[in-house]
């Protein structure tokens, strides 16, 4: 089955339901991670990285906007409302991506963890790459088209984070210790990034995306040589320590983030800004 236009979805309510679920996962993942990235603005280890990182955050916010637009086109709601208005219980992002960058607030005494930033972004970006490659063949053509666009930018994001990951993990002393700790921390919740949630089987059945297990194996295959290069063990199972965000389970970090990112929007959600 191929669906080429949103209007065709009326005749396939179950397909639509699985598609909407998938789009929320994709949109919410990119949206919240881009938000976390934007909190780093002005705080990166050097000016050059500040520029590169904010460029990546911008791309990622752009990707979220494209997914929210697909949802708007299906009639789920306005893209801006979907991004700013939904409470955490309705969000589908992985819990790992909502976690704060480290102690402190983005304006006061931020003691953000660059090792965590590198590992989280790198592992997520590789998972996103695997997903996007699959989505290029999605049965929902508007999504397949968006995947092709996103794929072009992902190449650079992936290269960027891979370089950081290898350099810092292969450095000796403090840097390697910090990176090892960050890897352990990210793996505790990385299962939440790789899962497609309760409706995953339906997504696969409808040809929207390939199976969770297939995607996970591709991620492992892509990471294997990197882990060998930095001399670390790659586990075969990944945790979901703080819950499955695909099912609406989230932490207080997400509530706080939503309050901040929608602060101005909430002053008057009905007006133009």
């Amino acid at each position: 089955m191929k669906i080429t236009k949103p209007e065709e979805l009326h005749q396939h309510p179950e397909y639509k339901e699985a598609l909407v679920e998938l789009l929320f996962q994709l949109a919410d993942d990119d949206f919240i991670l881009s938000y976390r990235g934007s909190e780093w603005l002005g705080l990166a280890p050097h000016i050059e990285e500040d520029i590169a990182f904010s460029s990546i955050n911008q791309d990622t916010m752009g990707h979220a906007a494209m997914y929210y637009q697909l949802l708007e086109d299906i009639g789920i709601g306005k893209a801006d409302d979907l991004a700013h208005q939904r409470p955490s219980s309705e969000r589908r992002n992985a819990v790992l991506l909502e976690e704060v960058n480290g102690p402190g607030h983005y304006l006061h005494e931020p003691r953000y963890d660059w090792a965590f930033a590198v590992v989280r972004h790198y592992f997520y970006t590789q998972a996103k790459k695997v997903r996007i490659d699959s989505l290029k063949h999605s049965s929902y053509e508007p999504l397949a088209q968006v995947a092709v666009k996103i794929n072009m930018e992902l190449y650079y994001h992936l290269m960027h984070w891979r370089t950081w990951f290898i350099q810092l993990t292969n450095a000796q002393g403090e840097a390697r210790e910090r990176m090892k700790n960050a890897v352990a921390k990210v793996f505790e919740d990385f299962g939440g990034v790789l899962t497609l949630g309760a409706k995953g089987d339906r997504m696969v059945e409808f040809g929207l995306i390939e199976s969770e297990e297939t995607l996970k194996q591709r991620w492992v295959q892509a990471m294997k040589p990197i882990f060998e290069e930095v001399n670390l063990d790659l586990p075969s199972e990944f945790g979901m320590k703080r819950g499955n965000g695909r099912n609406g389970e989230h932490t207080a970090d997400l509530d706080e983030a939503i309050m901040t990112l929608s602060e101005v929007y909430r002053l008057d959600p009905l007006t133009a800004w």
Partner: peptide, 23 residues
């Protein structure tokens, strides 16, 4: 302060690009 708080997706993208230019 206003980059994460910009009130729409379009404004978020705009101010991110702007501040990136400044850096």
């Amino acid at each position: 302060e206003w980059v994460p708080k910009a009130p729409s997706l379009r404004r978020k993208l705009g101010i991110m690009a702007k501040v990136q230019d400044e850096m």
